[in-house]
Design a protein around this nucleic acid. Structure first.
Lengths: 346, 346
DNA sequence: TTGTACGCGTTATCAC
DNA sequence: GTGATAACGCGTACAA
């Protein structure tokens, strides 16, 4: 062989062992149980490590002890601030727990998402956090691995969700306090088993309880700004005709829609007339960046992420100890949102 | 042992081998070179796989053949739309290339980021994509592993960047065509070796070439909306005093700042007076969601991500073939941005 | 076309 | 406190 390093062979415990005169076992112990070595020998090994420029190989470690320190994540997308911020917070938990995250973005197609799950399992992930809505929780549960979902259907798995019902109650109550004559909630149609349905229920319950005139509008406003705009513009025209001379309290499904509505109104009136009060949902950046800062129901993304990771870590630790594992029941946590009053309400 | 599965031992090639009467090798071939088996035997093995409910173990595979199919990513944050959208596109390349992504969010601290790099290397990643600015490219290059950076200092590594200079040229030219009397570029101070510096240079070059009166304002407008607002409000007041009765063309560093500026003006005047023309940068959602849709220089995030992944894949493939590898020189790609005219310019 | 034997780099289980 | 040796699950010469 020539002089130059042709293969860049990696330094292993074996090399360290030969170099120091110890056995591989002792080198392993240096990392996993250093106190069992004499200080002198610890130093010898430490010197060898830097002399040989050793780099650890976690894959070999995983194969030997089964602990990959991997967590899988599947998010629906990253263009919605809610998801990217949630991912941000989840990833940041590395500092605290040391888990590494394998991240997939869903296309919404079941078959592809199953491929993701298969890949994740092939890498011995210890658990996963699912935000995508594609695979039913029953199927997720069948994988028999620690799972926590966030803000999605969660009948058969552990989850952390915003208390959407309470959020809607807060928003609706604020509009009532604003002395609105008619309350309108604009949202999309979706099944009653996903957490966001609580927003609709909360709105209806409070309106009925307080005996306030109200209307629920369920429609699909599309995915682009233009589609949102056209849809909400047409809704607003109907509303103005239907409820003239009444103070209208508009509870929008999210801040993006609230902003569209606000823009339409401000472009027409030059300002937000007293006749309209608006509350959004999420406290995404657009709510504060809007031409008139939007009152909104603030999801506590940081807290949700923290609780989700904590819950998952608990389950993963559980699994490392017990053998038969007493099938600890699933846990559903709720995080209460915070009403943020800005300038689209009194 | 009791009757219940206490350990959930995983099915391995050995189990399949015993079940079918073949050797492990043949099972391995079934996956990696199926054509070398008779069709009959392929079916036998396929049957065994589902009978025993086999699940592949990629970690073992990696340990044996060295190909982890892992790519590491370090992003500065995910609250900026630019980064989350870029991550989105990069992750989506899984469909095309099959690489799995280990994602870290930088805290900006060098020591911690080195820990991330160490972790990534410990898992035998085949390459990495770096968006964070923390570690100098010289140090990155020393890791001696395929690397592509995006929109950051890139002297010693391959990279894909927006052609910031051309973007600035387009924005500035648009303001000139709008017959502005004075052109102002508001940006932050940063070193001249990062790509974004091209925005400043492009602005200055065109203004001087066209002999247009101009001013460059370098300042740190802070990280929150409030800080942005206060800073830009004060800047605007100065500008109005300094250039009364002149048509002012304002080229902002990004759409977020452009939106803040726009909001300040619209709140004061009720609209955007002809006296002000505004161009942002990035084409982030806020540009189209603003009270008046903002003209901007659109970064082609999807294209940048695609080029970055392609470049990285090339390098990773290169490395799989050659032994001494002729140290293929580093590559710097530039993607031209697209000027998007909306309503804050004529 | 199929099988044998060993290597990948670490941990676990016993010994001493 | 330290060391042999056998896993962990799969790939790959080499042989047959």
């Amino acid at each position: 062989m020539g002089a130059l390093k042709l293969k860049q062979k990696k330094v292993t415990f074996d090399d360290i062992a030969k170099y120091t005169g110890f056995s591989k076992t002792t080198i392993s112990r240096y990392f996993n149980n250093p106190d069992s070595l004499t200080l002198e020998n610890q130093e010898k090994i430490a010197a060898a490590l830097s002399a040989l420029n050793y780099h650890e190989n976690k894959l070999a470690k995983v194969l030997a002890n089964g602990k990959s320190e991997f967590v899988g994540i599947i998010v629906p997308n990253l263009y919605m601030h809610y998801y990217s911020e949630m991912l941000n917070r989840i990833l940041s938990s590395y500092e605290q727990y040391g888990y590494k995250f394998l991240v997939f973005v869903s296309t919404g197609r079941k078959e592809e998402e199953r491929k993701y799950l298969k890949e994740l399992l092939a890498y011995n992930i210890e658990g996963m956090i699912i935000l995508s809505h594609t695979i039913p929780s029953k199927e997720l549960a069948s994988y028999n691995i620690p799972i926590v979902t966030i803000e999605r259907e969660d009948q058969y798995v552990s989850s952390v969700n915003t208390d959407n019902y309470m959020g809607a109650v807060q928003a609706t109550s604020l509009l009532i306090k604003n002395k609105c004559d008619i309350l309108i909630h604009i949202n999309s149609e979706f099944p009653s088993d996903i957490p966001a349905y609580g927003r609709i229920k909360g709105f209806l319950d409070i309106c009925e309880k307080e005996n306030i005139r109200h209307e629920l509008i369920l429609t699909d406003p599309g995915n682009t700004y233009k589609e949102n705009y056209d849809c909400i513009l047409s809704l607003l025209q109907d509303i103005k005709k239907k409820y003239p001379n009444m103070k209208k309290g508009l509870f929008m499904a999210n801040d993006t829609h609230a902003n569209v509505l606000l823009n339409i109104i401000v472009r027409e009136y030059g300002t937000l007339p007293d006749e309209f009060r608006i509350v959004g949902f999420d406290n995404s950046p657009i709510a504060s960046e809007a031409i008139i800062p939007i009152s909104t129901v603030g999801q506590q993304i940081e807290k949700i992420a923290a609780e989700a990771v904590e819950l998952l870590v608990e389950q993963m630790n559980e699994r490392k100890k017990r053998k038969p594992s007493p099938q600890k029941g699933i846990t559903h946590k709720k995080v209460t949102p915070i009403l943020i009053r800005r300038d689209t309400t009194d």
